[in-house]
């Protein structure tokens, strides 16, 4: 094409920019959920404490540890891509996926136990929130796992590196870190502050 494209930036920057725009809208969405929770909680005058004590702080803490670690592994994967160490990048990505699955498994254990003890999504307004908020978060984790899995498969087959698409791990990482940050706030909101 004739005529230089002075403003055109390389395509990796497109992906990051696009992802940040998406994350901005997600901040507002999860912010909406959190606002509802915070406002109702503030208006409840401490009435939720008794029922809220039935969440498992132990399991929640482990899950927080799991997600924080998975954030480490995916950013290490990005670092490896930048250093041209594709095998290491692939492995770190694999760990991220694994940790995500562990998170969901623990969440499943929590849900099962809570429901068995009679605390369902419709028990009362606290449990409405607990299941809705953690459920939506878990859905986001699932989507993140799928995205990472697609990239992982590309890394295993080698197509990710051959077509110079390794920067996609960084973009996927941005999404993953965001979901981690949501949990960083959900954990104290739902587990610790009672």
């Amino acid at each position: 094409m004739h005529g230089t494209q002075a403003n055109v930036q390389p395509r990796p920057e497109f992906g990051k920019l696009g992802m940040w725009w998406f994350l901005a809208s997600e901040i507002m969405t999860f912010g909406g959920f959190l606002a509802v929770y915070i406002l109702y909680r503030a208006a409840s005058g401490g009435g939720w404490t008794e029922t809220a004590e039935h969440v498992s702080i132990a399991l929640g803490s482990i899950n927080t540890f799991v997600l924080l670690t998975s954030s480490l592994t995916i950013v290490k994967s990005t670092e490896a891509v930048n250093q041209g160490e594709y095998d290491r990048a692939k492995n770190y990505l694999g760990w991220t996926i694994l940790l995500g699955v562990v998170f969901l498994a623990i969440k499943g254990v929590e849900y099962t136990s809570e429901i068995r003890h009679g605390f369902t999504p419709i028990t009362n307004i606290f449990w409405n929130f607990y299941f809705a908020l953690t459920g939506l978060h878990a859905l986001h984790i699932l989507v993140g796992i799928i995205i990472n899995l697609v990239l992982y498969i590309g890394a295993v087959k080698g197509t990710l590196w051959r077509e110079d698409l390794g920067h996609r791990i960084e973009v996927a990482g941005l999404y993953w870190h965001f979901v981690d940050i949501v949990w960083i706030f959900l954990f104290p909101l739902l587990y610790l502050s009672y």
């Binding site: 901040i27 507002m28 909406g32 606002a35 999504p121 409405n128």
Partner: peptide, 24 residues
């Protein structure tokens, strides 16, 4: 992009009210 988030949140909560029986 900046304004639609809270409404998406509210719509999800409304759907939960209708389908699951929550009381948001």
């Amino acid at each position: 992009m900046l304004s639609v988030g809270p409404t998406i949140a509210a719509a999800v909560l409304l759907l939960l009210d209708r389908l699951v029986g929550t009381g948001f």
